[in-house]
Amino acid sequence: MSKTTNKSSTSADKRDFFRISHDVLFDYKVTDTFCAENDQPEDVFDDSASLGLINELRRLDRDNVQTLRLLTEKNRLLGDYLQMLSNKIDLIGRHTLFAHDAESNSKPTTRINLSEDGLAFHCDRMLYKDSYIAVRLVFLPSYSPVITFAKVLRCNQKEDKYQVAVKFFRLNDAQRQELSRQIMKAQIHNRKKARPKTQGET
């Protein structure tokens, strides 16, 4: 009995370790089962093409980071030049996003509770258990998007809002890796903020 309890406690601690409260640009749309099982989640959002472009540019950067490092070690000037070109392309991608949606830069962020398996958020309407939604998370300041389907696990009314918990549905490996990367970044940032400042730090 004790071993079972300890195992359950360890699993719960592990889930909590990989769960964060995070501010993101967040949007969702209610969809049906057929759409969630057969369509692409990007198709549910009208303005996802620009975000997809930025996401692909980020992926290319990650794939070539080792090559760029080796080039920089051999030729610092060439490495700096290629990095400058990469930054220029990144600016073009951001401009494409803002040109498509002029309000992107001023949209308010939403506080969500995030893990690799799902998320919890507050909304103004009831979402029925076992129904499906398409969710879009845009992580700042990199504007890295994760767009996927999710299944509603529960929806509880809390005052004039509804607290919703969903589990990601048809999440691919690249999206899971991006979620893991963002969770780890947020954890490192939170630990740095919580660390007591030593003498001489400002």
Rank of each mutant, 00 (worst) to 15 (best):
Q66L: 11
V65A: 14
Q199C: 07
K192T: 11
R62K: 13
E42N: 08
P141K: 12
N6I: 05
G93C: 06
Q187W: 03
R154S: 15
K193P: 03
I20V: 15
S86C: 03
R19L: 08
C155T: 14
S86F: 04
F98C: 03
F168P: 00
E178L: 15
F18G: 01
D130A: 13
I92R: 01
T4H: 06
V152N: 09
Q187K: 05
N64Y: 15
V152M: 01
T109K: 01
D16Y: 00
K158G: 03
K29V: 12
I188N: 03
F26M: 05
D90T: 09
S8P: 02
D13E: 15
R154E: 08
I20E: 07
D27A: 14
R125F: 10
K161Y: 01
Y143L: 12
L70F: 08
S11A: 14
Q182R: 05
A165R: 13
F34N: 12
R136K: 15
L51E: 01
K129R: 15
K107T: 05
L127S: 07
K7R: 15
D117P: 00
A99T: 08
N55I: 00
N38Q: 04
D63R: 15
Q157W: 01
Q177N: 02
M84T: 05
R125N: 04
R19M: 11
I54A: 11
P108A: 08
E73L: 04
R125M: 06
L114T: 06
R176H: 03
S142N: 10
G200P: 08
D173V: 13
H122V: 02
F98V: 07
K167W: 09
K88M: 02
T109G: 09
S180A: 14
A36Y: 03
N113K: 11
H122Q: 09
T5C: 08
S180K: 13
K107Q: 11
I92Y: 05
R195C: 01
M84A: 12
N105G: 10
I133D: 12
T4E: 13
A36L: 11
H100I: 04
Y128G: 05
I147K: 02
K14S: 15
D124F: 07
D16V: 03
Q177E: 10
I188A: 09
Q177V: 06
P108L: 08
K29N: 01
N64V: 05
D117F: 10
K192D: 13
T202Y: 07
V164L: 07
L153N: 10
T148V: 10
D63W: 13
T5G: 10
Q83S: 12
L179T: 07
F149W: 03
I188M: 11
A12V: 13
L60S: 10
T110R: 08
K193W: 07
R176Q: 06
K151R: 14
S48Y: 01
L140G: 12
N190I: 00
K3N: 15
